[in-house]
């Protein structure tokens, strides 16, 4: 394990510690989405997944 991996690991741990309180707060105050709201998110994400697969086939 070289020093760059050690620094990457330490940086990731620092980011996780920094983002954890914000994530907890967001979950607490998060408005609930309806199934229609979630479909509005899932459909474009599926389209993105298909698009990325298409790009991977081009290389």
């Amino acid at each position: 394990m070289d020093w760059m991996e050690i620094i990457s690991a330490l940086a990731l741990i620092a980011f996780i510690i920094f983002f954890f309180p914000a994530a907890r707060e967001m979950i607490k105050n998060n408005p609930q989405g309806t199934s229609s709201d979630w479909m509005g998110f899932v459909i474009p994400v599926i389209a993105i997944a298909i698009f990325v697969t298409f790009l991977a086939m081009l290389v």
């Binding site: 983002f19 954890f20 994530a23 967001m26 979950i27 998060n30 609930q32 989405g33 709201d37 998110f41």
Partner: peptide
């Protein structure tokens, strides 16, 4: 309004 995604995205990111 995609504000309902906030918590889900933050947990996913963590």
């Amino acid at each position: 309004d995609f504000s309902f995604l906030g918590g889900f995205l933050m947990v996913g990111f963590l």
